[in-house]
């Protein structure tokens, strides 16, 4: 045990270490993983004056309650999150996108994400984590990455290997916007679906199911009728692909998705909408809108510029 560490008093629902993820491993069956909401992940590291690929704690819905033991350290939380910082003498409500100092025996209590799913905690320093294939990102399905490939458990210790002493207090104003129309490019099996199914896909509302996780977003809505075959010969998948199994309920592939799939692909979510898609909590209603490739590329460029502008403000 190092001299600076957190004790996990309450683990939260799905708290894991994440960084930018691992690439060139799909052919082995190992997904990209990494922080689900890339923009908020980058902002967390920049606010904490870290390298942008530094490990962070990602939490979903209810976050962890962490008791800190060690020398003075600073942290920040990004996303849309309610949290408290508790010391022996005070208890304050924290603001996202602001850095805070904590001391020995203080607690960070991450109560919940508000009308969103994921939040990020970054330290002005470094968590002591294991790397596999160049990334610490935890994939709980294949037990790959930091924390023995597992989510946080009650009572466990999280060691900190380094504290940055030189540090300036930082803060930005940023409000996460909610997305209602997810923009998609036609999938490679678009013609497997009936005219009515296509019409429903772009006109009707879909609800995010409770069964969604880091692997995929499951949707409930009008069943999409397949007029060709409910299976294709298994082939590679990427983040954002919308597969429709035989039951007619679409599933959107997210960061921990299986690398190969055998269901027809009706569409693919554009890269510019990915960060906001993953933040839609279960029960949210969404609609899909079809756009073409060149518009998707322009939208991504704009989204990237916006992210860079935010990072430059810090």
């Amino acid at each position: 045990m190092s001299s600076n560490y957190f004790k996990v008093i309450r683990s939260g629902i799905n708290s894991t270490f994440q960084d930018k993820g691992r690439s060139n491993l799909y052919h082995l069956g190992i997904p990209f993983s990494g922080a689900m909401d890339n923009r908020n992940y980058l902002l967390a590291n920049k606010l904490a004056e870290n390298d942008l690929n530094n490990p962070v704690i990602e939490f979903a819905y209810q976050g962890p309650l962490l008791k800190y033991i060690g020398d003075k350290i600073r942290f920040t939380i990004t996303g849309d999150v309610s949290f408290k910082i508790k010391s022996k003498t005070s208890e304050i409500d924290g603001n996202c996108y602001e850095t805070y100092e904590i001391n020995n025996e203080d607690e960070i209590d991450i109560l919940s994400t508000n009308k969103s799913v994921y939040g990020y905690l970054s330290l002005s320093g470094k968590f002591d984590v294991d790397y596999q294939w160049g990334s610490c990102s935890t994939n709980t399905k294949s037990n790959i990455g930091a924390n023995n490939g597992k989510k946080f458990q009650n009572g466990q210790i999280i060691n900190i290997s380094k504290i940055n002493k030189n540090f300036n207090k930082k803060r930005i104003n940023y409000i996460n916007t909610k997305i209602e129309k997810i923009r998609v490019i036609k999938g490679t099996n678009f013609n497997y679906f009936s005219e009515i199914a296509i019409n429903n896909f772009f006109k009707k509302e879909f609800k995010i199911s409770k069964l969604s996780d880091r692997m995929g977003t499951r949707l409930e809505g009008p069943k999409l009728e397949n007029i060709n075959s409910t299976n294709i010969k298994s082939e590679g998948l990427i983040k954002g692909v919308i597969q429709v199994p035989g039951d007619g309920n679409p599933i959107i592939m997210l960061s921990d998705h299986g690398t190969i799939g055998g269901y027809p692909k009706i569409g693919v979510v554009i890269s510019a909408d990915y960060d906001r898609l993953v933040q839609l909590p279960s029960g949210s209603k969404i609609k899909f809108q079809q756009i073409d490739l060149s518009d998707a590329e322009t939208l991504f460029k704009m989204y990237e510029m916006e992210t860079q502008n935010l990072l430059n403000q810090i």
Binding site: S23, N24, L25, Y26, H27, F32, K233, S234, E235, G236, L237, I238, T259, I260, S271, L293, E297, F300, E304
Partner: peptide, 21 residues
């Protein structure tokens, strides 16, 4: 970023920050 061979397809995913389709 990734190259995924399957029975009769090859999917090549790339970094949209670096190159376009």
């Amino acid at each position: 970023n990734n190259i995924t061979p399957s029975y009769n397809k090859l999917i090549i995913s790339f970094d949209l920050k670096k190159i376009k389709y």
